[in-house]
Amino acid sequence: MDRQLLIFATICYLAAVIRTIISFRARIFRRNRFVFLMIALGFVLQTAFLYVRGHALRSCPITNLFEVLVFLAWSIALIYLLIGPAYRLSLMGAFTAPLVFLLQVTALFAPIDTPRASPIAPNPWLEFHASISIIAYGAFALACVAGAMYLVQERQLKTHQLHSIFYHLPPLPNLFSAMTRLLWFGFILYSAGLISGFFVNEPLPWTKIALAIAIWILYGAILQGRYLGWMAPRRIATLCVVAFAVALSLLWSIEFVGHHA
């Protein structure tokens, strides 16, 4: 039952991706209501999946890598639905849908939905720590999306090759502002997640702690670089994309280490 919900959610995201591709091929780049609605429907189905799975587990459904990926995709969709319309970031849905779809497909098709050997005792601090950290990842993912949009727009301006998409992407300052706010939002949540980790009161592998701190330092350094003027906006945008790729790899490692610890 719960996997069916997830499959339907993935179909919604697939529809958003296909619509995006069709629009891009037709050189139509304006904000698409269909894409927004598909993401919203996918989000509702994901929420239902997490509810059903959480009810069965009697805890927050982030007990294995499969659930973590779904929770991450859910977080990205949630933050997009919250900030996308607020910042009038037209086209962000077009960039977000493929990312969420990829996470969902990976979760569905990779053999990672393996139940834990030993059930975890209920621990509110652990659940808070894990869930808030993954939502922070969702914010970092959206900062990555805004960064990618910034790089596309900046590249067109630099090379003087203005494609139709140029007139539909938000101006550079708007993208940079959204990127910075998402970085701050993600960093604050991630810091809260990291601090709460010390209250979990369970033995955690040192590698997991070291990797988590490494991600925190990475994003902290980007924000520091931005506010001290060490890096031009284009470099910040590049780092947003690179940092999320690194953070996603490390998240995988953290879960892998955690699962095998």
Binding site: L157, F166, L172, N174
Partner: peptide, 9 residues
Amino acid sequence: VDLAEEIFG
């Protein structure tokens, strides 16, 4: 004008 608006908002 269009370029300026994309660069500066």
